[in-house]
Design a protein around this nucleic acid. Structure first.
Lengths: 330, 330
DNA sequence: TTGTAAGCGTTATCAA
DNA sequence: TTGATAACGCTTACAA
């Protein structure tokens, strides 16, 4: 591993000439350049990125605050990393649990920013934290981006969750399902919008499977309990779009337990396309998020911001669609 | 964000004094130190790690070559990251697919090492690649470590897979299971060792569920097909330890399809404790790997190596046990 | 107890 | 087309 000086010595010229030849800026005699390039390879020259970063006042590191090791997050990170690396950056990841409030965030940022990343991506947190991040980083002039956080004044790559649910409902109807119900919290506007849009188009009234109240142990448990609610409903829904794969899988478990057949008695569609969806019985039909692609889009945008490209007229935000993956449960 | 000079100016002393006060080396008048610390905080002083790394000829970055986003890998990375961060390092991750041979590896290392990480961790690859890594990095004097790669001359943190299987078989026997079978390739010495050890202790002969030959699409599919083989066996095994959760989940699917009851007709135990195991029906009893702990152990060892601690008499390797997680399938 | 000055390996300025 | 030389912000001998 050699430095500029070593190459210059061996080539019999100044380090400036070597730098010119290797970085491809300024005029260098063709023969000289060739000799220098050859010697650099011989000596295994590798630029010292600390010297470079120090001098150029910019780093080649992108920080990702994932706050979690959930597979949906990790897939985004992997896509992000792929295009970031191709653009010459490397990616450092924060998996540890994220900050709950602005005070806690201060500590995290204080730990993150001294590394002087060229840019930062955040995964969703609560609105207060997100806004604080945006303000803080805007003030530091550090380019940043959020995943999946629709907030005014916060640049983000987004997911159109309604689209996949819309497709799902239409698919279920085309398969002859008459009573299509939604299983999950009524507060998820995004998914429910697609649900309602599709049903309106079919000129049908929306149905719901009742979910547990209070604080249940997990969405799986809620789904499992919901199977009993489904069995009591009359007429019973013959198709169910669940809020998540976890909930759908719990629902499946509950259905198995009471002897209901899937998809004969009821078709079940999940949301997320987790690994577990393809390993279930029956293999779960589900709405897939383009996680990897979202990560790639994020890296693309962040790199543009770092390069100083002007913000497009419609802002930096980009929205990717979700789509149905058909397996055996519906 | 201020530098040493800014603080020195405002404090009315030399940068050397500021450095001494802030880095806690050498003698500084108590009052001076206090004043400097206060001003540093006021000005939001943050050491420039590029300057520091350049001068001290060492980086504070640890590179992890995960080659995959599998949850088992990511859990190790997260554990690694946690203790690495606590030790003052940050972690950059490589998720992209790993090198198949030594030639491809050359390219990957050439991309990885110019960043001059303080240390590198690799996930399992084939023996040739692993040995090449070890040789190359040893030559570069870059501390390194492998995950889960038992090879002479290669430092690694290891998993005792036999232990969990041993526990599992004993558990099944204690539950009254008479015919305990193994489902999976006969080439996995690690798991099979535990299987045979336990059966020997019980003075029973080992049984096996026949698996598909040829190249099947997935281990899930193999497991599913194996359910038919199980049904034909006589006497039928009343308990099955599978090679992996995927295979166990496929087996479960096959059993459901032919109407066999789990665990009444046959108890099923998986291996890995993937997220999907807890979402299956019935919830899968499985052997869990201490992934997070393994990652933490790896970071601990790597940091010691970087600090230059002498190699312990029994080498750097450490082995962690696997253990049974009981749910509903057995 | 404090300050001066050299140097880490680049890039950038300016003159030759 | 090339080469001195000065930064970049920090650590560290060495001097005061």
């Amino acid at each position: 591993m050699a430095g500029l000086k070593d190459v210059a010595e061996k080539a019999g010229c100044s380090i400036r000439t070597v730098a010119r030849a290797l970085n491809d800026n300024g005029y260098v005699h063709a023969a000289t350049r060739e000799r220098i390039v050859r010697i650099a390879k011989e000596l295994d020259y590798r630029p010292n990125r600390f010297a470079r970063s120090l001098r150029m006042r910019k780093s080649c590191e992108l920080a990702v605050a994932a706050w979690s090791t959930d597979e949906l997050h990790v897939a985004k990170v992997a896509g992000f990393e792929q295009v970031a690396r191709r653009a010459g950056f490397f990616v450092s990841v924060y998996f540890s649990k994220g900050p709950a409030g602005a005070a806690e965030l201060q500590g995290v940022l204080g730990e993150l920013l001294p590394h002087r990343p060229a840019g930062v991506v955040f995964f969703p947190t609560n609105a207060a934290v997100a806004r604080h991040c945006a303000r803080h980083l805007g003030h530091e002039h550090t380019p940043y981006l959020f995943f999946d956080t629709a907030l005014p004044g916060v640049d983000s790559v987004l997911l159109d969750r309604g689209q996949g649910v819309y497709e799902s409902v239409l698919y279920l109807a085309a398969k002859g399902r008459q009573r299509i119900a939604y299983l999950g919290s009524r507060k998820d506007a995004n998914r429910l919008d697609g649900f309602h849009r599709a049903l309106a188009q079919l000129a049908r009234a929306p149905l719901y499977v009742e979910v547990l109240h209070g604080a249940p142990e997990s969405t799986w448990a809620i789904g499992k309990a919901a199977a009993k609610a489904w069995a009591r409903q009359k007429p019973r829904p013959d198709a169910v779009q669940a809020y998540s794969d976890e909930m759908a899988l719990g629902f499946l478990a509950g259905l198995h337990e009471i002897g209901a057949r899937v998809p004969e008695d009821v078709a079940v569609v999940g949301f997320d396309d987790r690994r577990a969806a393809a390993l279930a019985w029956p293999r779960l039909t589900t709405v897939a998020q383009p996680n990897r692609e979202l990560g790639m889009a994020a890296a693309d945008i962040l790199v543009r911001k770092i390069k100083g490209e002007p913000e497009p007229p419609d802002g930096w935000n980009r929205t990717l669609p979700t789509k149905l993956v058909v397996r055996d449960s519906a």
